[in-house]
Simulated assay, not measured.
Amino acid sequence: MSISNPNNHQFATPQSLSDWLRPRLPSDSFASWGVTPGTKNVDNLWLEISEGETSLADSTPPIRTVNVVTVRVIGKNNLILLESHQELSDGSVRDRCKPLSEKMKPNETPQAAVFRAIKEELGSILNDAGAVTIVPGSYKEKLEERNSVSYPGLPARYVLHTVDVVVDGLPEGDFCTEEAEEYADSEEKRAAERAVSVKRHFWKWVSPESLQSS
């Protein structure tokens, strides 16, 4: 199974996206993007759309649809790896308290997204040495609709693809990883430089029971 966004609305520049969004969103919510700590800005959303990770319905307000792979990394004594918080490029800290997750690319299978997510978010500590094993029969799909924390005022529809994995070579205690640069010199790179990005991920191991109660 692969994921595609055939009806994705494309925008040539972040400014054209901003002009399209402005009359469709509450002005106070839109003004908070990239200003309120923990939020993202128009450049972030434009990058998501350009990469095919996000689609926007032509409605008021628009509905943002995202396919997300959630990777439950199972460790020693069945502990689960949780991203406790992130350090962002604007100096703010965003609480996460979620397993590793990544927006899926167009036509990407959940399995391929799992391996990419682990490489992108844990690769700086694994150095390509960690073997990844997907737990058979662990795949689940769920739909969630809620307001976006990253983009206030923009309703979101998340298609969540959850998979359990075992990753060799991870520390047994708390640790952090660094995010690698993603874009070559292009309009995307220039937008990425203006976007609010994750610089560091902070991880901890928790019991399955604490995850269910959170």
Rank of each mutant, 00 (worst) to 15 (best):
I3V: 14
I3D: 03
I3T: 12
N5G: 06
N5E: 05
P6G: 13
N7T: 10
Q10S: 14
T13S: 14
L17D: 00
L17H: 01
W20R: 06
W20I: 02
P26E: 08
W33M: 02
G34N: 09
V35S: 08
T36E: 08
T36N: 04
G38Y: 01
T39N: 03
N41D: 08
W46C: 00
E48Q: 12
I49T: 03
S50V: 05
G52W: 04
G52S: 07
E53R: 06
S59Q: 11
N67I: 00
E83I: 06
E83T: 13
S84Y: 03
Q86I: 01
S89N: 02
D90G: 04
D95S: 15
K98E: 12
P99S: 12
P99G: 09
S101R: 11
K103L: 11
M104N: 05
M104R: 07
N107W: 09
V114D: 03
R116E: 10
R116G: 08
A117N: 04
A117I: 02
I118Q: 02
K119P: 00
L122V: 03
D128F: 10
A131T: 13
V135A: 13
P136S: 10
G137Q: 06
L143R: 12
E144L: 12
E145K: 15
N147Y: 12
P155I: 02
V159W: 07
V159H: 14
D168H: 11
G169Q: 06
P171A: 12
D174R: 15
F175M: 07
E179Q: 14
E188Q: 15
A191P: 00
A192K: 05
A192I: 01
R194P: 01
K199H: 14
H201C: 13
W203G: 10
W203Y: 14
P208V: 08
E209D: 15
S213D: 12
